[in-house]
């Protein structure tokens, strides 16, 4: 892909007839040709095995990957319902996780030892035990330890009592377990973001008379976003796939749905492919979304934003010079107009 340096290459041929100027011979890269050839062969093998090869199963010759089966189940109703659960779990876990993360991060940075200490212990515990164990705990452990859950005055009278098995369904346990676990990870990410903001910002805000909360919300967090967003995007993508663990607590997500189907019809691999295609689709969507969110929060840190991939594509296809976007349009999310 890399272009050879412009000037010597330009001279090739151009000055052929001029005996005074020596001919420039660009460096050859035989290694690249070999590597390219190898990759080409591998790709051809992959395409062949995916699309064109056959195999004998139980005396029947059929396509190796059984794409028609994949096609049959890709939009099957249980699969679509499973996708709904997967997305719901992802959104809940990330929203609660981020809120919890902000709270824990602020607690950890508090000068109050009790607050920072409890946040530390929380993070230590939830990062230190496997999420699979945590999920199982919320689903079966809670009901085992506390068959009756009670709302009331500590050590005093109870107002409301409920059967744990009724309250903590598989979905609730999944959402709870994933959220609480995510909170611990988000806390560290948010903390890193907050620390990255120059202390002078806090001082300037305080000298205007802003309270600690205002300073955090209006001044520090918006600037911390630039540091917080990229790892949070990774966390979201990771969470989308981690939700598949709820299968161990009778969850009804995408992975569980496809597993249920293949348990009945023994089409194990095609249904794995169905699940994987959907996971890939959603992680791709998230990746694109993350790019644009990052770009948005880069305002104020670079004078002009680089063109988006779409703009770059257009530029390359039509040789249109795209104006660099001025980095800073109106900022409705922080402007003191509300």
């Amino acid at each position: 892909m890399t272009d050879p340096p412009a000037s010597p290459a330009d001279r090739v041929g151009e000055h052929d007839e001029d005996p005074a100027t020596p001919r420039t011979v660009p460096v050859r890269h035989p290694g690249r040709w070999v590597a390219g050839g190898v990759i080409l062969v591998l790709v051809a093998m992959l395409v062949n095995t995916l699309l064109f090869s056959h195999v004998e199963r139980g005396g029947v010759r059929e396509g190796r990957f059984q794409w028609p089966v994949v096609g049959n189940y890709l939009f099957d109703a249980p699969v679509i319902r499973g996708i709904g659960v997967t997305l719901e779990l992802t959104v809940i876990a990330m929203v609660v996780g981020i809120a919890l993360g902000v709270l824990l991060a602020v607690m950890r940075l508090s000068p109050n030892r009790l607050l920072s200490g409890s946040a530390w212990v929380y993070i230590w515990f939830f990062r230190g035990t496997p999420v699979l164990v945590q999920l199982t705990f919320w689903y079966v452990g809670i009901a085992y330890l506390y068959p009756q859950l009670t709302l009331g005055v500590p050590f005093g009278p109870a107002f409301y009592t409920v059967n744990a098995n009724v309250l903590v369904t598989s979905f609730v346990a999944g959402a709870l377990g994933l959220s609480l676990n995510e909170g611990a990870y988000m806390a560290e990410i948010v903390r890193a973001g907050i620390i990255s903001v120059d202390e002078g910002q806090t001082e300037a805000a305080q000298s205007l008379g802003m309270s600690k909360i205002q300073t955090l919300r209006r001044i520090v967090l918006p600037q911390a976003m630039r540091i917080i967003i990229p790892p949070t995007g990774n966390e979201t993508i990771s969470m989308l796939k981690t939700t598949s663990l709820v299968i161990v607590i009778a969850g009804a997500d995408l992975w569980a749905a496809t597993q249920n189907i293949s348990a009945a019809n023994y089409q194990i691999v095609p249904l794995m492919v169905v699940a994987s295609l959907w996971y890939l689709f959603f992680t791709s969507v998230l990746t694109v979304g993350q790019y644009y969110v990052e770009r948005y929060y880069a305002r104020g840190s670079s004078r002009a934003l680089p063109p988006t991939p779409l703009q770059r594509l257009r530029q390359e296809l039509f040789h249109i010079r795209v104006q660099p976007v001025p980095a800073l349009p109106e900022a409705p999310w922080v402007a003191p107009h509300e």
């Binding site: 002078g200 910002q201 802003m210 600037q223 104020g300 800073l328 402007a335 003191p336």
Partner: peptide, 22 residues
Amino acid sequence: RLNLFPHMSALDNVMSGPVWVK
């Protein structure tokens, strides 16, 4: 040290105190 709020325009910087604090 120059410590304007970098994520806000000059105008918003100058408006921030009156609007948020007062």
